[in-house]
């Protein structure tokens, strides 16, 4: 059959590889351990201190 012959051809195998690559890439940020912290608001609140940028008392105007 035409379909079964196409299944074992190179274009089909390349397409499968492409889909596999795309599916592993999809949601890559979600699978990064970076977001374990950066999605946790409570943890970030506890761990990030308010850093007040010090401005000169002589500064005037905002440009």
């Amino acid at each position: 059959m035409i379909v079964s012959r196409w299944i074992i051809t190179t274009p089909f195998l390349l397409a499968c590889a492409g889909i596999l690559a795309w599916s592993t890439q999809a949601g890559a940020a979600a699978s990064s351990s970076c977001v374990t912290c950066h999605l946790d608001e409570d943890m970030l609140t506890d761990n990030l201190a308010v850093v007040k940028a010090k401005a000169s008392a002589k500064q005037s105007g905002s440009g």
Partner: peptide, 21 residues
């Protein structure tokens, strides 16, 4: 401070969320 670096679920589901951090 926490809002400055808080990532949203919306980002993870977006096109750019498909790239690892």
């Amino acid at each position: 401070p926490q809002t400055k670096v808080l990532v949203s679920e919306e980002f993870l589901n977006s096109t750019h969320g498909e790239i690892s951090c």
